[in-house]
């Protein structure tokens, strides 16, 4: 049953991905002729006409799109107009750096958020709870670019405690199977990751902490927890075995939807911290109307999103036996 479900979901995702490419294709082409971005500062009329033809923008839109989809089905995502390299290759090359950021952000927004949320719930009403919740409130109300620049000026430039900007690859050698380099880089990589990672993750960290707290409060007041307590189970056991499990459900749901959200933070953080990831690539590609690169990244992200949510639904079903996959 599980397999059938997964296959059906994957088929659905094909529709989603076609929709996503069509949407981005139309949007970018509605913007008018991208040719002007690929001619020199003092271009002549003739150069503009020639360039338009070289880039293929003189063909009717439907032809361009069908051409494109035909290519995608055979694994060809087109060639970047600016870099003259296969578009998907460019995106994949940059993906590890972005994954480092997103995973770090997801990690702090769960690994840190869950314990502090639980602690706040258990200590409800104490100054500890108040402090955590105040911090969480601020974390949710500070624009991320601002936080990033402040971190650079204070921690990076003021204290000289962390590197200001740049990137040391970690996942890239790891994916390439070069464990030695990955290990050797790991210390530096982490140091370079902290400030941009916090910039991306602090909003989610704060929100999740609050979410865990209120979910915990709700669960703790429920009968089966009270029953467990009255049976004389130790408090830790009650919390870990009964309460936590239920409190995790909203968090797991959040993570799936979060991915797209974290990406917005990624575009900003990659710009502030000179992080060579997909966020900046695609931002530049959009402003330069490098349509194949935009398409390739949109397809990749939709795919990751769809996959992640499928995974989460499966985890979800494990967490809550009342939920059945249909």
């Amino acid at each position: 049953m599980m397999t059938a479900y997964i296959i059906r979901r994957l088929l659905q995702s094909v529709i989603v991905i076609i929709g996503v490419t069509l949407l981005s294709f139309l949007t970018l082409h509605l913007a008018g002729d991208p040719t002007y971005l690929y001619v020199s500062e003092r271009a002549s009329e003739q150069e503009i006409i020639d360039t338009r033809q070289k880039l293929g923008f003189d063909r009717p839109l439907p032809v361009q799109y069908i051409d494109y989809i035909g290519g995608v089905l055979t694994g060809d995502f087109g060639t970047s107009l600016r870099a003259r390299q296969p578009a998907m290759e460019l995106v994949m090359e940059r993906l590890p750096a972005t994954l480092e950021l997103t995973l770090f952000a997801m990690a702090i927004s769960t690994v840190i958020a869950i314990p502090i949320g639980i602690l706040a719930a258990i200590n409800r009403g104490t100054p500890f709870d108040g402090g955590i919740m105040l911090f969480a409130m601020f974390g949710q109300s500070i624009p991320s670019f601002w936080l990033g620049i402040m971190l650079i000026l204070s921690v990076g430039l003021g204290l000289r405690a962390l590197p200001i900007s740049g990137h040391v690859p970690l996942l890239e050698p790891l994916f390439a199977g070069d464990f030695q380099t990955a290990f050797a880089n790991s210390g530096d990589a982490l140091r370079y990751l902290i400030m941009p990672g916090i910039t991306v993750g602090v909003f989610s960290l704060s929100r999740n902490a609050r979410l865990v707290r209120s979910a915990m409060l709700e669960v703790l007041s429920q009968e089966y927890v009270t029953t467990a307590r009255s049976k004389g189970l130790r408090e830790q056991v009650v919390i870990v075995r009964h309460a936590l499990r239920n409190a995790l459900i909203p968090i797991v749901t959040m993570i799936g939807l979060e991915f797209g959200f974290l990406l917005s933070g990624v575009v900003v953080a990659e710009t502030v911290f000179s992080w060579p990831g997909v966020g900046r690539l695609v931002f530049n590609a959009i402003t330069q109307r490098d349509i194949p690169v935009v398409q390739a990244s949109v397809v990749l992200f939709s795919f990751l999103f769809v996959g992640l949510n499928l995974l989460i639904d499966i985890i979800y079903a494990q967490l809550d036996p009342r939920i059945r996959l249909r």
């Binding site: 620049i149 430039l157 000289r160 200001i164 900007s165 000179s274």
Partner: peptide, 18 residues
């Protein structure tokens, strides 16, 4: 040649000596 898109970051790196 390092790519540093944000002007404040560029200047911070300069002042930090990197």
């Amino acid at each position: 040649w390092r790519v540093i898109p944000e002007a404040s970051t560029r200047v911070a790196e300069l002042i930090a000596g990197n």
